[in-house]
Design a protein around this nucleic acid. Sequence first.
DNA 1: CTGTATCCGTCGCGATACTG
DNA 2: CAGTATCGCGACGGATACAG
Lengths: 128, 128
Amino acid sequence: MSSDPASRPNGASVLTAACPSRQALALIAGKWALLVIPALDNGPLRNGELLRRIGGISQKVLSQTLKDLERNGLVIRADLASKPLHVEYRLSELGRSLSSALIVVDRWAETHHAALAEARRQFDDRLG
Amino acid sequence: MSSDPASRPNGASVLTAACPSRQALALIAGKWALLVIPALDNGPLRNGELLRRIGGISQKVLSQTLKDLERNGLVIRADLASKPLHVEYRLSELGRSLSSALIVVDRWAETHHAALAEARRQFDDRLG
DNA sequence: CTGTATCCGTCGCGATACTG
DNA sequence: CAGTATCGCGACGGATACAG
């Protein structure tokens, strides 16, 4: 924790014990932040738009996720007071810096999901 | 899903709907894979060693996490049949490719956890 | 040392219905 | 359109005890 992360060799003793970085990771641990943040990477989106882009998320959980991200300064909520209601969510500077890291993870998932599935198949075969 | 992820501009429409990549993300969604995988990045570690390096994880959850990662072909379990028991866990090729992505996220958490805390403080202040 | 088994609380999250 | 309220299930995960 005390030394500059960038000065360390790859993956050396990172995030051990109860250092406050764990709280930061809790933001990402959920299923959805990993999808919501990159979804906003290209520009502001509205609630409904997010619901459609991210399939499978419920309105409630999207609200919760956005509120949590807003609370942590990653997402900025812009309420264009109008009728019908119009609210836009966009990434803050901080949010964008996280997004670029998460996008790498998402890309990894896209690229390797087949390999994972195959590994599972083999593993389960060898048992019953 | 059909196009090469690397050919896409940053964060464009990734992982929408129910594409199989979601299963891959489920591996990471938990609290612990994010810590266990980078911990193994520098070389094989034993059960007890992992318990110490990653503070706060229980024996049971570590076992579950490792088994799940092994099942998905990310971690290789080497049982050096000996007494006292000696088991080593190391990353597979696939695991290492994921690790490099996760390390970026971990570093982000280390670097920005203070900013997040500050954002939370301000946000909570503005309410009650 | 390296696990598994059991108990059990918490919370993530989905479904549905309702409000501004 | 945006968002909250309520209900409820099931998975995550912690504590403890036990086993090879």
